[in-house]
C-alpha cells in the first residue's frame, strides 16, 4: 500500500507538472495543446547535446565542438529552448489563425507535435540517447528507492500548483492571465494586451513541459523521439480531471492518475495487459467527464422527485 502511494506520488508529480502547462495555456487562451510532450522531448535532446559536449554541425567549415556543460546549464538551456518553441508557435501559427475555433488550434498543435517528432527522428535517429541524472544517490521511502530528481519533481509540482496562482495574483500582468479565462473580452477592455497573455502562457506551458521532462528522464536514464509525449498524454488527462482551469486541480489530477496507475500496476499486473497506464487514463477520464455531466442531472431529477426545490441543495 505504502509502495503504491509512493510510486503514485512520484509519477503523479510529473503528470502534474505537464498538467500545469496544459492549464496555463487553457486558462490564458481557452485552447488545449497536444504538442507540449514533444516540446519537452526536444528540450531533452538539446540538454543531452550540451551535457555531452555538442559537435555543432555547420556547413562549409569545421564543426566546432562545445565543451561538455554541467547538467544545470543544459537543463536551463532546454527550458529556455522549449519556451522559445512555445512562443514561436504562438507567433507564427496561433496568432495568424485569428479569432479561431479552439479545436482548430488544437489540430494545429498536432502539426507541431508531428513536426518535432519527425524532426527528432531525422536528426537523431531511433537509437536511445542518454542523459545522466544531475545528482546521484537514492533514498528509501516505504520500501521504494527514490531518487532526488523524483522528489524534486513532486515538490516542484506541488509548489507550483499551489504557489503559481498566488504569484500570478501579485503582478498586474499575472492578474490579467488569471482574468483572461474568466472573460477575455473584458481583459482587453481594461487595457491588458490579450496577445501578450497568449504569448506568455504558450511559452510558460512549453517551459513547464521541459521541466517535467528533465525531472522524469533520470528515472530511466535514456530517451528517444516521442519519449515525453507518452507521459504528456497522462498530463493532459490530469488537467481535464482537475477541471482544466485550476492549477491546484492539475496537481490533484496528476497525483490521482499517478496513484491509480501504480495501484493498477500493483494489483492488475496478473491479467497480462501491457500499457496499463493508458487504460487507467481512459477509464478515469471517461468516469470523470461523464460523471461531471451526469451527476448534476441525476441530482436534479432526484430533487424533482422528492419535490425539493433545486436551490435547497446549494
Amino acid at each position: 500500500m505504502g509502495q503504491v502511494v509512493v510510486l503514485g506520488l512520484i509519477s503523479g508529480g510529473i503528470y502534474a507538472l505537464f498538467a500545469l502547462g496544459v492549464v496555463m495555456v487553457h486558462r490564458g487562451t481557452g485552447v488545449l495543446t497536444f504538442a507540449n510532450g514533444e516540446v519537452g522531448t526536444a528540450g531533452l535532446f538539446l540538454a543531452a547535446l550540451l551535457v555531452d559536449g555538442w559537435e555543432i554541425p555547420l556547413p562549409f567549415m569545421d564543426n566546432p565542438t562545445l565543451p561538455a556543460l554541467p547538467w544545470p546549464v543544459g537543463a536551463l538551456a532546454a527550458v529556455l529552448f522549449a519556451a522559445g518553441l512555445g512562443c514561436l508557435f504562438e507567433l507564427l501559427v496561433v496568432r495568424r489563425m485569428g479569432v479561431s475555433d479552439p479545436v482548430a488550434v488544437a489540430v494545429a498543435t498536432v502539426g507541431l507535435a508531428l513536426f518535432l517528432l519527425a524532426g527528432e527522428f531525422q536528426l537523431f535517429g531511433e537509437s536511445p540517447k542518454e542523459l545522466a541524472a544531475p545528482v546521484d544517490g537514492t533514498v528509501e521511502i516505504a520500501g521504494v528507492l527514490v531518487t532526488p530528481t523524483q522528489i524534486a519533481g513532486l515538490v516542484l509540482a506541488i509548489a507550483l500548483g499551489f504557489g503559481l496562482q498566488a504569484v500570478l495574483r501579485r503582478t498586474d500582468f499575472g492578474l490579467g492571465i488569471l482574468a483572461a479565462a474568466q472573460d477575455p473580452s473584458a481583459v482587453r477592455l481594461v487595457g491588458v494586451p490579450l496577445s501578450r497573455i497568449s504569448l506568455t502562457v504558450w511559452g510558460a506551458g512549453a517551459a513547464l513541459a521541459a521541466i517535467a521532462s528533465l525531472l522524469v528522464e533520470p528515472t530511466v536514464g535514456v530517451f528517444g523521439p516521442g519519449y515525453a509525449s507518452e507521459l504528456y498524454v497522462v498530463g493532459l488527462a490530469a488537467a481535464v480531471v482537475g477541471g482544466l482551469n485550476s492549477l491546484p486541480g492539475a496537481v490533484v489530477g496528476g497525483v490521482t492518475l499517478g496513484i491509480a496507475e501504480s495501484a493498477a500496476t500493483r494489483y492488475l499486473s496478473g491479467i497480462g495487459l501491457s500499457g496499463l497506464r493508458y487504460v487507467v487514463v481512459l477509464v478515469v477520464l471517461l468516469a470523470v467527464l461523464i460523471g461531471r455531466q451526469t451527476i448534476p442531472d441525476l441530482l436534479k431529477r432526484l430533487d424533482e422527485q422528492t419535490g425539493r426545490p433545486a436551490e435547497a441543495r446549494a
Partner: peptide, 29 residues
C-alpha cells in the same frame, strides 16, 4: 461518450483511445 463531450474533451478522449490501442490492446499476444 462523444455524445456528451464536445470539441477539446473529445480530442483528449480519442488521444487516450489511440494510446490504449497502441500500447495496450494491440500488445495482447
Amino acid at each position: 461518450p462523444a455524445l456528451r463531450l464536445r470539441g477539446l474533451y473529445l480530442a483528449v478522449v480519442t488521444v487516450s483511445v489511440a494510446y490504449v490501442g497502441w500500447q495496450s490492446v494491440f500488445r495482447v499476444e
